[in-house]
Design a protein around this nucleic acid. Structure first.
Length: 452
RNA sequence: GCGGUAUUGGUGAAGUGGUUAACACGCUGGAUUGUGGCUCCAGUAUGCAAGGGUUCGAUCCCCUUAUAUCGCCCCA
């Protein structure tokens, strides 16, 4: 048997329905914010990603899917969304577009050569946004608000927004030096990994899991104290805008993100839910004012976030959120003999073209099995074909909720079905004194003080 | 790259060094000669991840590999 590759998953059934639903919510929210969809290639020149992330991490050496193509070009499957979007921005000269800034969103698969674990796969799906060409704090706040509002639309409650600032490059470099000088005398107290980090990527010492309880960690210098006046003012502005947007956040000085290109605002949105694995950051992002020029474009500022779909859906599952997945069909067409079968396929097509969601029998089950199958599919109506009825241009149709059965002329079937299905839609609702429909236990929307 | 735990049918799973591998769900058929959802009956694993070893004998013990899962590194 050929089996799937490590760290990949087949998405099907109800799970797939959930993903499609979340996709639709993402599309809707992005549309309201006027982010335009962008699709960039899944594979790019290796150099794009290597230049993007810099040399200070393991990423380049061991965590990308690299291969040589038949033309002996070094190719890499995209490990994240930003680099491709920025490449596209430069290559298509979007900086020259009349409408600035450029606001785009993506939603697609990424590839990372990692050891799979909770919340971590080799093929993963991320969506995210990139805004290129605005340095305004307002857009920083907006970028944070987009995932927050998507999560809100989905009903996700246990989220924690952590923000921090690295300041501009001057502040950032300043801070880095202070941090190294602070930790160097204490190097013996640090764990093995942090000893390496001190040289490679000292900022990441701050979110070490092993050393986090040490005294020296608690007293470590904080980025915020080493900002120059301008960087400090920026951060304050962002916080003000977030307050205006009513977005709760925590200033967490240990949020540094791993890569060199970040500056100013950085943020992580955690799923603060019981039972979530160690990888509980579902969305993260920040400002990357140096990246466009690093990749060969004009000096352009940028900001964005990315969100892992798999982790997001796990979070929804863990909170027990039931997404509105439509798992019923309008009608199941049943038949027994060949003559009825021909009518069945014809009728199905006609009903589908008229907007009904219709199924029929494909595996030669007996009538009994067809009833079972119709129930499994949650069919609202059952259409039972019978040669005798067909001679009169009629079919039997049974309402699977009320069990009421009728014989209907084929010419009127569509109207009859519409009527039956409409009644069912209101079945869950009640009509209150003021005459309006609403679901049980829901407040009446009429605004008057009616007794419902 | 490193470590922990696991791997029995379509599914959830019990189980023991020794003839036919529980039980449940599901599915198919029958009781009901064209009307199901309840009930009853029947059928449903050349087989306990793969390979090797220990043994008279292994699904059960040992080793290796694969896969899954969780964690470390890293985190875009």
């Amino acid at each position: 048997m050929i089996i799937k590759q490590k760290g990949t998953h087949d998405l099907y059934g109800n799970e797939a329905k959930k993903w499609k639903y979340v996709d639709r919510v993402i599309d809707e929210v992005m549309d309201k914010y006027n982010y335009n969809f962008i699709r960039t290639p899944i594979f790019e020149a290796t150099e794009l990603f290597h230049r993007g992330v810099g040399e200070s991490t393991d990423i380049v050496s061991k965590e990308t899917y690299d291969f040589m193509d038949r033309g002996n070009r070094s190719i890499t499957l995209r490990p994240e969304g930003t680099a491709g979007v920025v490449r596209s921005y430069i290559e298509n000269k979007m900086y020259g577009d009349a409408s600035q800034p450029i606001k785009v969103y993506y939603n697609g698969t990424m590839y990372r050569y990692e050891r799979p674990q909770s919340g971590r796969d080799r093929e993963l799906t991320q969506f995210g946004i990139e805004v290129l060409g605005s340095d305004d704090e307002l857009i920083d706040a907006e970028v944070i608000s987009v995932p927050v509002n998507i999560f809100k639309m989905l009903g996700l409650k246990g989220i924690k927004v952590n923000i921090n600032t690295l300041g501009d490059n001057e502040s950032r470099n300043n801070y880095r030096e202070v941090l190294v000088n602070y930790f160097r005398p204490h190097i013996d107290e640090l764990c093995e990994d942090c000893k390496k980090r001190l040289e490679m990527n000292p900022l990441r010492i701050l979110d070490c899991k092993v050393d986090k309880d040490l005294e020296i960690m608690k007293n470590a210098p904080k980025t915020i104290d080493y900002l120059n006046a301008e960087s400090k003012a920026r951060f304050e502005n962002i916080k003000t805008y977030l307050d205006e947007l009513n977005i709760e956040y925590i200033v967490n000085p240990n949020i540094v993100r791993g890569l060199d290109y970040y500056n100013h605002i950085v943020f992580e949105i955690e799923a603060d839910i019981e039972g979530f694995g160690s990888n509980n950051v579902i969305a993260a992002g920040g400002r990357y004012n140096g990246l466009v020029s690093t990749l060969g474009g004009p000096e352009t500022c940028g900001v964005g976030f990315a969100c892992g779909m798999g982790r997001l859906i796990s979070a929804l599952d863990l909170e027990g959120i039931e997404l509105p997945i439509n798992d019923s069909i309008d009608a199941f067409v049943m038949y027994v003999n060949d003559e009825e079968k021909k009518e069945a396929i014809k009728l199905c097509q006609e009903l589908r073209m008229n907007g009904f969601k219709v199924e029929t029998e494909y595996t030669s089950r007996g009538l009994k099995g067809q009833f079972k199958q119709a129930d499994r599919l949650n069919s609202k109506l059952l259409i039972i074909l019978n040669s005798e009825d067909l001679k009169n241009n009629e079919v039997k149709i049974k309402n699977n909720v009320t069990k009421k059965e009728d014989i209907i002329n084929l010419d009127y079937l569509i109207y009859y079905m519409d009527e039956q299905l409409n009644e069912m839609m209101y079945d869950d609702e009640e009509t209150c004194d003021c005459g309006c429909h609403h679901e049980h236990d829901h407040e009446c929307s009429c605004g008057d003080d009616c007794e419902c």
